[in-house]
Design a protein around this nucleic acid. Structure first.
Length: 182
DNA sequence: CGGCTTTGACCCGCGC
DNA sequence: GCGCGGGTCAAAGCCG
């Protein structure tokens, strides 16, 4: 597993440059519970998402992949997907989310939850579902970029990955500590 | 009372 | 054109 990487906050500052990561890179780091988190995709430029010749094999396995490509292209938004081994259904990332839908997905025993950023002018969306293959994992998908600062989180600087420790001890305060570098 | 969640209905894109 | 499935809406209910 490659650990030499640049990481971008799931809710990147709109002023930050989108990192053009290989589409199917997986990254490993630990959360606050000592579990592994597999970063499935970092922020994905829209042109990568719609490029069928790219190495997007993993997401291509998703039955909805093709239909969603057009949406992402039309919205010119970036997407961030990560897979977290956690007992928690909802990973608190410091932003405030409002649930607006829940859907049972075909061939998946677990429902998918839909969230919008509760900030008035922010159109960022988040989908949360348990991995159909391994329900120990939670798949979180962010769509879009927040147009406001995270109200309650600490963001690392200089495009450097911090310690990979999720700070989940307080509600609405998930953050990365910056004590060490990978 | 305001904000949030729940949930059924509706919309839309895609495949056949 | 139709059916299916995912995404979104919005009314109702819940809770602090």
């Amino acid at each position: 597993m490659d650990t030499n990487f640049q990481y971008q906050n799931p809710n990147p500052n709109p002023n930050q440059e989108i990192i053009n990561q290989p589409f199917d890179d997986y990254y490993t780091f630990e959360d606050g519970f000592g579990e592994d988190i597999f970063l499935k995709n970092t922020v994905i430029p829209a042109e990568n998402i719609v490029n069928e010749s790219s190495n997007s094999s993993r997401l291509a396995n998703n039955m909805q992949h093709r239909s969603r490509e057009k949406k992402y292209k039309s919205q010119s938004e970036c997407r961030f997907v990560f897979r977290t081994k956690s007992n928690m259904e909802i990973m608190d990332d410091g932003f405030k989310w409002r649930k607006y839908g829940k859907k049972v997905i075909k061939n998946s025993p677990n429902p998918r939850n839909y969230f919008k950023c509760s900030d008035g002018g922010c159109n960022v969306k988040k989908r949360v579902e348990r991995d159909r293959d391994d329900s120990r994992y939670v798949i979180t998908t962010y769509e879009g970029v927040h147009n406001h600062e995270c109200p309650n989180c600490v963001v690392y600087c200089n495009n450097q990955m911090p310690t990979h420790e999720w700070n989940l001890h307080q509600p609405s305060s998930l953050s990365f500590s910056s004590a060490s570098e990978p």
